[in-house]
Simulated assay, not measured.
Amino acid sequence: MLKKAKVLIVDDDPLNRLVLEKTLADEHDVFLVENGEKALTFLKTTTVDLIILDIVMPGINGYEVLVQLKENPVTQTIPVIFISANTSHDDEAKGFELGAMDYIAKPFSTVIVRARVRNQLLIKQKNDLLEMLASIDGLTEIPNRRYLDENLSREWRRSRRSGTPLSVILMDIDHFKRYNDCYGHRAGDDCLKRVAHALVGACQRGCDFVARYGGEEFAAVLPGMDKQEALVFANKLRDAVNALNIPHKASLNAEHVTISLGIATSETGQVYAEQVLLEEADLGLYQAKDSGRDQIVARTVSVSR
């Protein structure tokens, strides 16, 4: 069974809300609020796929709501359909200039509403698919560096707001160049795929995130994990790769493929930039490799950094 799209209706007229709900409820999960302030509050805790937004409302009007939606990275990609009794071309043009995807004039036809909503959701579905494909590493089929940067930035902001820990792990396949030289690049690609899937398979929480960082390096973003918990998780990752038992006769530290890991943790969420966590994790990774590889080094990032 396909998951229903979530549609938020924002209109101060109770009759309009009722008619729109009855029009869309058979195909979609519909949520109703009566003004712009409540819409913005609702969207802080609930994700929706599309918003039908009245323009003239008490308090902040629809235009102002749309401006705030577009300024927020969490809501800026949600398609918005304006619905209004204002029928001037200037009003319609203003809506499109601010980023609305469509405009429906009141009194509205329920058939037109269904069709416009269906079209916008189809466009969003295609855009989401393209975005997902652009965020996946072509070789390993796990998230790529671009997706990692977006995820880390999002989790860093959440950590800053809540004051909760955030840990980052950088991992490197030990002596991978020697592996490629010994077994060939096709075998090297297969090794990267197997390691990637083992790392992803070690994640049990839905919020844990593993991506290909570049070359033979991988990264994990671990919201809510303090230094000790990140160490436990890093050992799981290391054990998962060791359990693959991929032969590596050219390795200088083991007879099979191993990884080195560097951990950086912000215990209180007060690190001033997410890039600091990557830099500290990279220092930990360097120390792990310098200590003989197949090692884990954890660092706590101070508030001043």
Score class of each variant (00 low, 15 high):
Val65Met: 01
Leu130Ser: 03
Val111Glu: 14
Val19Met: 07
Glu64Gly: 01
Gly224Thr: 01
Lys249Asn: 07
Leu192Glu: 02
Lys249Met: 11
Ala243Pro: 08
Leu285Asn: 01
Arg145His: 11
Ala25Trp: 05
Asp13Pro: 00
Lys106Met: 04
Ala240Gly: 09
Val276Ser: 05
Ser167Gly: 06
Leu53Tyr: 04
Lys3His: 12
Thr45Tyr: 15
Lys236Ala: 09
Glu217Met: 07
Asp181Val: 14
Leu170Gln: 09
Phe82Ser: 03
Gln68Lys: 14
Asn235Met: 12
His28Ile: 09
Val113Asp: 04
Gly138Leu: 08
Arg158His: 09
Gln68Tyr: 02
Leu192Tyr: 10
Gly184Val: 14
Arg212Ala: 00
Val221Asn: 01
Asn16Phe: 04
Thr87Val: 15
Glu267Val: 13
Glu216Trp: 06
Tyr179Val: 03
Ala85Tyr: 10
Thr77Asn: 13
Pro247Tyr: 09
Asp26Met: 08
Gly215Leu: 03
Ile9Phe: 04
Asp128Arg: 05
Ile51Cys: 05
Leu2Gly: 00
Phe42His: 13
Gly215Cys: 05
Ala240Tyr: 11
Leu8Trp: 09
Ser302Met: 10
His185Cys: 11
Tyr147Leu: 12
Lys249Ala: 13
Gly163Leu: 08
Gln76Tyr: 15
Cys191Arg: 13
Ala25Gln: 13
Lys289Thr: 06
Ala211Asn: 08
Val297Pro: 00
Gln295Lys: 15
Gly163Pro: 06
Ile52His: 00
Thr140Cys: 02
Leu98Asp: 00
Tyr63Pro: 00
Arg157Lys: 14
Ala202Asp: 04
Phe42Asn: 14
Asp54Lys: 05
